Amino acid sequence: MKFAISIGVFVWTMAWLVYELPQKSKVKKIELIIILVLSIEQVIIIGQAARGEMSHFNISSILNAVLFQIMGIAILINTIMVFWAFLLFRKVDTLPKGYKIGIQIGMVVFIIASLEGYLMASNLRHTVGAEDGQEGLYFLNWAKTYGDLRIFHFLGLHALQAIPLFAWYFSRENTKPVMVFGIFYFFLSLGTLWNAMAGRGLIVFP
């Protein structure tokens, strides 16, 4: 369910952003490729759940390993599409300056956080200092007492919404506040990665 929600938010966000691009033929290619690879991702996740198998970090059989690899390739292609859109935004001169830079910073942070997923894949786990499945926060399930690499992944991916929205509502024409907010957001997110890599859990008050 979390992946379905996340993918839903992402595709709506990309539709909202690439609408601003004038290169419509290239935008159409980006849109179709994103729809294709994320449909593959979601089908595998649902299919593995229906089989009673983990979708992620599962190399317990050849089939499970192949499906996990396909998911990784799909996400890499999706990340490349975001990078392509980022490059296309450089030529856009019809948007408010603050909003444009907000979109670009959001995409850069998204790309970094997306690639961080391969750190989890290489470890075949998202928990640092213990096995996956530790007690976590309600719904999000981020580990309370151990490091969890998913926190940076989540925050970084949603920079794609947070930073452009900040720019649109608070600094549409002024780039400096957007850049300050973007840098602050990135380093705040990066701090959760540093905390997780050290094996430290979230500070949770009872």
Rank of each mutant, 00 (worst) to 15 (best):
A121T: 13
L140N: 05
L149W: 09
G136Q: 00
F139D: 05
A159K: 04
K97V: 06
A113C: 14
P96G: 02
F83G: 09
F166N: 00
S171F: 08
R51Y: 10
L149M: 15
G129I: 07
S114N: 08
T145I: 14
L88K: 03
D148M: 06
M54E: 13
T79Q: 11
I112Y: 05
S171K: 03
G52P: 00
F86L: 14
I151P: 03
N64K: 07
E135I: 09
L63P: 08
I103M: 06
W168N: 11
L155S: 07
N58G: 00
A65M: 12
Q161P: 07
G182Q: 00
T127A: 09
H56C: 04
L155I: 14
N78E: 13
L76S: 10
L88A: 07
A130H: 11
G106Q: 06
F181S: 00
G52D: 02
A50D: 08
I111Q: 11
F86R: 13
A49Q: 15
M81L: 05
F166I: 02
F89I: 06
E131M: 10
Q104T: 12
W142N: 01
S114H: 11
E131C: 11
L155C: 07
I75G: 03
L95S: 02
E135V: 15
I103C: 02
N123M: 09
V109E: 10
N58R: 00
L119V: 15
I62E: 14
L67Y: 03
I112F: 11
V108R: 08
I111D: 10
P164D: 05
Q161D: 03
I62N: 13
L67I: 07
M120K: 05
V109Y: 05
I59E: 12
H153S: 12
F89Y: 09
Y185W: 03
I77F: 02
E116K: 12
T145M: 12
L165S: 05
W142I: 02
L137G: 03
L137Y: 00
Q48G: 01
L115R: 09
G147A: 07
I111E: 10
L149H: 04
H153Y: 13
R150Y: 08
S171H: 03
F83P: 02
H126K: 12
L149V: 07
I151N: 05
P164A: 04
I112V: 10
W168T: 01
I183W: 04
F170I: 00
I112K: 04
G102V: 02
G117D: 05
N141D: 15
K144W: 05
T94V: 12
V109S: 06
G182V: 00
M71A: 06
L119A: 13
L63C: 13
Q69D: 10
T94S: 11
I75P: 05
L157H: 14
L67R: 00
V82K: 03
I163G: 01
R90C: 11
I163M: 02
F68L: 10
N64S: 09
Y146C: 06
W142L: 05
I73K: 07
N78S: 14
L149S: 09
A113K: 04
I151M: 15
A65H: 13
F110N: 07
F83N: 08
G129S: 08
S61K: 06
R125G: 12
H158S: 04
I163K: 00
